[in-house]
Design a protein around this nucleic acid. Structure first.
Lengths: 337, 337
DNA sequence: CGCTGCAATCGTAACGTTACGATTGCGTAA
DNA sequence: TTACGCAATCGTAACGTTACGATTGCAGCG
């Protein structure tokens, strides 16, 4: 983007017979320049289409006005992370509004999260980092705190340190979901989770246990599955459960893929959704509306989560000594009726 | 990201009693420095964890090593653009491999595409642009060509100028889809398209017309719908068609939302997929596998499209005088059986 | 009239990098 | 010995910006 005729401070200064310094100050309404001069400077700046050069400024101030979001790629199927797109959109919009730009750093499952973050840090091309897909005892948090780099996490980890995060109240979601199934009369309730070290899944397990304990139902480990769900694996797993001697009558899905897999099995087995088996799931509000029977859906406004992540991060950047924010999104549970 | 102890050329130079110039050259294997010196410099650079400063370099060279992708946000529903996530992932990975980073610029439907692009250009914070959602006579292409800014479009527009693009062969997709329905015996074939000015939709219409003409079937405008599809609007539209005196027996969906809406209507009306009505759609390979009857699915590897976009753009940047590439992705049509 | 204080403006250096044209040292040919 | 060519290295300026400490002009005061 070199189109050579880009206006800079020097040109404006020359045109007005002012110094570069005064122009620079005028453009940011410095109190030390005459209001009339400010007006003249701004007028010329506007006419020649002046926009401060990103890199000149970054070099001088050390601030880049760029935020980087580290997002893992899913291998299974892109349907598996529907929520990521509105998250990205929410982040970019919020960043844009305050003059930041958002850079996306995708990591593949092969990437070592800590190592790739190290490399990211060294380029020091961002003022702050948004990291996601937290795992138990996440080393990245310690690293970032050590280096005093502004960051915010999407999701929590189990460390005894304060760090800024935005998270979804997974415990409550799982509790609500399980509770709803219990209320429908289910006692054998299957639960889909992601890999064990995934912090969100661990939290959901807690909510599930709490609801089950309240209802006085013992936990049956064989009904709880950890894994990376695709439609196929979800279908296979649920099919196996239904074939057992004491099949589940309720299912809490991990995501939309899990739901679609389970629905497929129900269809194949001729079981009726909403009577033979009750299902609750997440983030599938639209799809749920088209199902023959009502299912419970817990949904979170991911665009709002994205916006909040950026806002929290920007506050960390401008006020590193400020309070360490911890924000929990409750989301909405639509019980179906 | 200020963590003050970041190594720079000066420090390395001081440590080795060399000049900054020599260090700089040594690090990029300049032929004018002694191989032994190169080795020593690199060794120290590695030890102190030197990484070239992005902004210093950008300021000096005018190159930022950043690419910006302009992506529209969908208002209707995030399901509507499933393909965007793998596109983003493909782009970021390809960019990363060659040392670029990818910045995402989301535009809302309220944004004037040309105006927001202007603003984007002025900040000159990217070496090149990827623009999407092309419209008829897209003004952005002219603007970018005028300013000699490296760019590539995802999708084509109808201008008499050569410009680099990567596109999906929508005409062929629509042709294949229509042809498949004709082969199934359909003569009343409904077609879902996006808004008329959307270039991809216009191209698909051409493919549809070609297949219909080949089959000797006259076009019935009432079977062709332009609009922004949600599940609900797709369902309502298709329901209306089915209620008419001469209902369609075939349907080519615009996307997965359109498909889900149509499936819902079939279920409600008790019509059988694959006998009463045949359906073809796009990018729903996984979902299709779970449907009671086989449907035709045309799928494109969007991650590959993303990678290609970045690669073409990088070639534009390094060799602006090089050939203007135009790449068409055929995708794969899975006829169902 | 000379001094002070203030408002307005200026000049210079610096951020880290690279490009360009010098400069050094040394072996070799005249 | 002197001049030359070459390899290796150096010094300086510049990219566009901002921070800092000067500098100017002028009104008000004793």
């Amino acid at each position: 983007m070199k189109s050579g005729d880009m206006a800079n401070l020097k040109q404006i200064a020359a045109e007005l017979s002012l110094s570069v310094t005064t122009v620079s100050r005028a453009l940011k309404d410095g109190p030390e320049v005459h209001p009339l001069t400010v007006a003249r400077v701004k007028e010329v700046a506007k006419r020649v289409g002046y926009v401060p050069d990103h890199h000149g400024r970054a070099l001088k101030t050390g601030r880049t006005m760029t935020l980087t979001a580290v997002l893992p790629m899913e291998t299974s199927d892109y349907l598996s992370d529907l929520a990521k797109l509105p998250l990205i959109e929410g982040m970019t919009l919020a960043a844009r509004q305050t003059g930041y730009s958002l850079s996306i750093y995708s990591t593949t499952p092969d990437d070592d999260p800590v190592e790739s973050m190290r490399r990211l840090l060294q380029a020091r091309s961002a003022d702050g980092l948004i990291i996601t897909r937290m795992v138990s005892g996440d080393a990245r948090v310690k690293l970032l705190l050590d280096q005093a780099i502004p960051f915010v996490t999407f999701g929590r980890t189990d460390l005894d340190i304060a760090y800024p995060y935005v998270d979804i109240d997974n415990e409550q979601i799982a509790y609500d979901a399980t509770r709803r199934l219990v209320d429908k009369g289910c006692r054998r309730i299957a639960l889909q989770l992601l890999v064990p070290k995934d912090q969100a899944s661990a939290t959901r397990l807690i909510g599930y246990r709490r609801a089950m304990a309240e209802a006085g139902i013992p936990i049956d480990q064989s009904l709880i599955s950890h894994g990376t769900f695709t439609m196929e694996s979800s279908a296979a797993w649920f099919d196996r459960l239904l074939a057992s001697s004491d099949p589940p009558t309720g299912l809490a899905c991990a995501n939309e893929l899990g739901l679609l897999g389970a629905l497929h099995v129900l269809g194949k087995r001729g079981l009726a959704l909403g009577s033979d088996v009750h299902i609750v799931t997440r983030d599938s509000t639209r799809l749920a509306r088209f199902l023959p029977a009502k299912i419970g859906v817990h949904s979170v406004d991911m665009a709002a989560v994205g916006r909040t992540l950026v806002e929290v991060l920007e506050r960390r950047i401008t006020d590193p000594a400020g309070p360490v924010e911890a924000i929990l999104f409750k989301g909405e549970f639509d019980a179906g009726e």
